[in-house]
Simulated assay, not measured.
Amino acid sequence: MSKSREFILVIFIGAFISFIAGIVFNKSICLFINIFGLPCPSCGMTRAYISLGHLDIKKAFYYHPLFWSVPLILLGYKNKKIIYILGILFISVWLVRMYLYFPDIEPMKFNNKAIYVRIFNGLKNIIK
């Protein structure tokens, strides 16, 4: 199997798992927030594209200021330099958004029903 087919397969498997997690947890389709409780670096991307689809560019930038970079990632996934630069940019924007908005403002809300949060709280209650 070629590298590009493997890449596409991984994306589809991740999307399927995320979709199932969204149904089970009834919160978000993001595996990261459903497992850890924290928003992921691409949190708000779906809402940004929905806003863009409604031609509300200001709201799209609010939900995720890097929504425009996804086509660059998809087109340049073989170019490591582009991926590294965009990865650093995503993490930088994520840190700023976590500082400004976490844990109470959408889309940077904390998920109290996340798997690790439930496990931690259960262990904390047992230890008491």
Rank of each mutant, 00 (worst) to 15 (best):
I23S: 01
L100A: 03
K81R: 05
N112Y: 12
P103F: 09
V117R: 01
I17M: 15
M98I: 10
I82P: 06
N121W: 00
K113P: 01
K128V: 07
G44A: 09
V96I: 14
Y63G: 02
F16N: 10
F102R: 01
G44C: 09
Y101M: 14
F7C: 13
C30H: 14
W94R: 11
A48E: 04
R5N: 10
Y62P: 05
F7Y: 14
K81Y: 06
K113M: 05
I20E: 07
I88N: 02
F19C: 11
K109N: 15
K124C: 00
Y77A: 03
N26Q: 15
I8P: 00
N34A: 08
D104P: 01
F67S: 03
A60M: 00
G37E: 12
A15S: 11
S51C: 03
M98V: 03
D104M: 06
S2H: 04
I126Q: 00
V96W: 10
T46Q: 13
R97C: 07
D56E: 03
S69C: 03
F120S: 00
L100E: 09
H54I: 05
M45P: 05
Y62A: 05
S28P: 02
V93F: 08
F120I: 05
Y99R: 07
I20G: 04
C30M: 13
F12M: 13
D104N: 10
N112M: 08
M1W: 06
N112A: 13
L72H: 08
S28R: 08
P39T: 15
L89Y: 12
F110Y: 08
G76S: 08
A15T: 10
L74W: 11
I83P: 03
I119N: 06
I83H: 05
F110A: 04
Y49F: 15
L66F: 14
I127E: 10
W94I: 10
A21R: 13
I20C: 08
R5K: 12
G87W: 04
I91F: 12
V93K: 02
A48Y: 03
F110E: 02
F25P: 05
F25E: 05
V24D: 08
I50V: 15
N112C: 04
I126M: 00
K59E: 14
R5E: 12
I11H: 09
N79A: 01
N125T: 05
D56C: 01
S69Q: 09
Y63P: 02
F61E: 04
F61I: 00
Y63W: 04
N26F: 13
V70T: 02
F19D: 07
I91H: 01
P107R: 11
V93A: 11
Y84N: 11
